[in-house]
Design a protein around this nucleic acid. Structure first.
Ligand SMILES: NC(=O)c1ccc[n+]([C@@H]2O[C@H](COP(=O)([O-])OP(=O)(O)OC[C@H]3O[C@@H](n4cnc5c(N)ncnc54)[C@H](O)[C@@H]3O)[C@@H](O)[C@H]2O)c1
Ligand SMILES: NC(=O)c1ccc[n+]([C@@H]2O[C@H](COP(=O)([O-])OP(=O)(O)OC[C@H]3O[C@@H](n4cnc5c(N)ncnc54)[C@H](O)[C@@H]3O)[C@@H](O)[C@H]2O)c1
Lengths: 180, 180
DNA sequence: CTACATTTGTGAAGATTTTCACAAGCGAAG
DNA sequence: CTTCGCTTGTGAAAATCTTCACAAATGTAG
């Protein structure tokens, strides 16, 4: 069982067991893990055993792709608001949501209980919006802007930097060729 | 100098120096690093001292966002072809490129010297396209499909999994709240 | 030329992570 | 109830990564 999990996760059985043991004891010796139970426990530990309320900040190209991506909702991330500063976009409707202006941002976060934001605005706007989001009570940020956000340490930030991913590929390829 | 680099990279000066020492000796003692030189050396090491030829596979929502993202080209990743299987999309023009059908895939990779692909097709199609890309000579894959691609180890794959990033946020938040 | 103020590069120490290997526990079979 | 086969959970060992602390360079000033 830990063997199979290891194979799927590209790691070793011992690592799987050690990692799980860090959070508790889930399996039965001689038997393995009961999948539904383990799954439920892990969901609870990770915090994905309940829906999360998300606001999309920046209704641009990447924002649109993300908004239309059904897997988010399927996994419990529910987009409850969209904010953009472009006057042409404010008031237009995406799905069941109307795009709002940034002056309403704090009100939206507070009234809709937004916990997470997806920040998909250009770099220069990102820091200010992040700070405002944090002040308004947002608890975490998924950041697509290519800057390091300066927020209090209690607010986790996950950066998505696709250029770094491409550069990691370039490095791996260059490296492999150097070896050969 | 290593102090400043450390501050920017959220790490320590010793770490910066140790990491650099792994690839060579770049600075001058007592003086620091000469920025232009260090930069050039690292670009060469990473392999980003020359342009990379990229094909976009999957002209959907995420594919469009990526294609229109100017930072890729600015950093030396040049999109030289777009492939999609949708008959409505084949033949249409994005920027200076015409979308091609998947039956042309191998020809395109070979004739245009495609080194990297950005895979932005639905999961079920991804494995087959990845295998064909590798056979046609592609050297690396940036994969957006939510599956683990099975390709030979000489071909590096970078996975972008935004759901995992959101789940990492959820975990960090849940954890912080448990502590408090 | 010598003393001095700097900052790198790097062994050694310390900390963390991963692997090893096996006792502890569990169900099944006799 | 006892034995047996199997898989987890976990201390201990091994490997890896990070930090420490300082000698080796380098430019400068006297
Ligand atoms: N497009 C991509 O594939 C891609 C990939 C990785 C990262 N990114 C990053 O994501 C961010 C957005 O990229 P994009 O391609 O969607 O850009 P975009 O220009 O298409 O969209 C940005 C949106 O943000 C809005 N905006 C600007 N200032 C704002 C403000 N102060 N308040 C609210 N909204 C504001 C704009 O009106 C626009 O709708 C950028 O930081 C970019 O670097 C984009
Ligand atoms: N949209 C997002 O924000 C997002 C985020 C993360 C990951 N992803 C992943 O990226 C992939 C694409 O997502 P999307 O939202 O752009 O989907 P999409 O449906 O908008 O686009 C997929 C495109 O791939 C094309 N396609 C399908 N089969 C093909 C084949 N065999 N050969 C060539 N082209 C083919 C389709 O015609 C379509 O144009 C999916 O795997 C999705 O899980 C999307």
């Amino acid at each position: 069982m830990s063997e199979e999990l290891a194979a799927r996760g590209q790691t070793t059985a011992a690592q799987v067991r050690k990692d799980l043991s860090h959070f508790g004891s889930f399996g039965k010796r001689g038997l393995g893990y009961r999948v539904r139970e383990l799954r439920a426990s892990l969901q609870r530990i990770i915090g994905v055993d309940r829906p999360w309320r998300v606001a999309l900040v920046g209704a641009g190209r990447i924002g649109l792709a993300l908004f239309e991506y059904p897997a988010f909702r399927a996994r419990g991330y529910e987009c409850v608001a969209i904010v953009d500063s472009d006057p042409e976009k404010i008031g237009t409707v995406w799905g069941n949501l109307t795009i709002r202006g940034p002056e309403e941002f704090e009100t939206i976060v507070a009234s809709l209980d937004v916990e997470l934001i997806i920040l998909a605005v250009p770099g220069p706007a990102a820091q200010e919006l992040a700070a405002r989001a944090v002040d308004a009570g947002v608890k975490g940020i998924l950041n697509f802007a290519p800057i390091r956000l300066n927020v209090p340490p209690r607010v986790p930030v996950e950066d998505v930097n696709l250029i770094m991913e491409l550069e990691a590929l370039s490095f791996a390829i260059t490296q492999a060729q150097r070896d050969a």
